[in-house]
Write a protein that binds this DNA or RNA. Sequence first.
DNA 1: ACCTGAACACCGTTCAAGT
DNA 2: ACCTGAACACCGTTCAAGT
Lengths: 207, 207
Amino acid sequence: MPARARRTYHHGDLRNAMLQKALELVDEHGPEAVSLREVARRVGVNHRAAYRHFDDKRALTAAIAEQGYLALAVALEVSWAKSEKKAPRARVVALMDAYLDFALESSARYRITFGKRVNEDDRYPVLEATAERGFAVLMRALGGMRATPASREQVRDLGFSLWSLAHGYLQLVWSKRIRVRPELTARYFHALAVPLLDGWETTKKGR
Amino acid sequence: MPARARRTYHHGDLRNAMLQKALELVDEHGPEAVSLREVARRVGVNHRAAYRHFDDKRALTAAIAEQGYLALAVALEVSWAKSEKKAPRARVVALMDAYLDFALESSARYRITFGKRVNEDDRYPVLEATAERGFAVLMRALGGMRATPASREQVRDLGFSLWSLAHGYLQLVWSKRIRVRPELTARYFHALAVPLLDGWETTKKGR
DNA sequence: ACCTGAACACCGTTCAAGT
DNA sequence: ACCTGAACACCGTTCAAGT
């Protein structure tokens, strides 16, 4: 009796159930493994039921990405809160570590979150907003780093530099263009990022 | 008479024809649009004929990626040759420009070339080798940049930094996480990369 | 040696119908 | 309001057969 698998004919929380199963699928078999039909199968409903909650497959991907940006923002906020007693510069480094840790621990999720097709799509402005929430933490950390005041644009540029560096580094590591032992992946990133922070502090102070 | 479309029953150069049509497809409709069946259709053969030249779909993707790395390496080599009369640092900047130009002018190709799945796959060592050829140009340019000698490891780290920065920047621009007017995309990258070069020159000289 | 055609197990998406 | 089932047009891949 398949009817016993669910209490009622109506699932009740199908949207969240699908999102949950989709995330499991991403973690298990990578971003490409997500299909509407497989997710529906895992939840235990007809594949057509999905369309009550997601306009199309991309809408499901967008929901996964939104969840990803949100989890990333929360991870950064937690790091920021926990580093309160540290020096400003150490707080920035801690934040970068939190970013790398998040990406490395759930790399499939990270990859689907930053996937081009869904981020390009203007139908999901929520992605912009949620990503912004994470970037705001970095801006705050960088803003507090130097005694010498810098313009908002200068801080933003440094923020984009660090973000680009971290994101590109991760992609190149995953694509095997940068070869580094897995347990040293986060540490080696320091070697790349520190000169950027050094340059920022020394160059600006010198003026 | 479909037979008139080709001179003989045998195509003769099917592998190259498929690769060519695949690249057109990538440029026209993006990386996702490439399917063995569509490529075969465009060449004018049965989709099964593809399997004589490519083991599976990924092998076709790998061939596209190899072609991409090769074109990139050539673009960098051309830039390097053309900048012979410039100062060492200007040559590095010219090289970065060439990289950005290549990526922006054929972004779909760039994206499929650096695609994770195919680069992860150990069945295509040619990708490693061809990518290395491009990176070697950057290493040469950076090695010539400073009077003060640096170890090969230090130069390589700087190279990985610049590569990560450029690659991550491109991804974030394409994903709309960094918003910049299209005609300023390459110029804004300068603002991000220059501090890295400055930091490298000043920090090392000071010791 | 190289190409074809039918078949299989998957997709995403649409339409008409069921509860 | 929510879910189902058959159908359509696509995939990649395999097998047996054609030239």
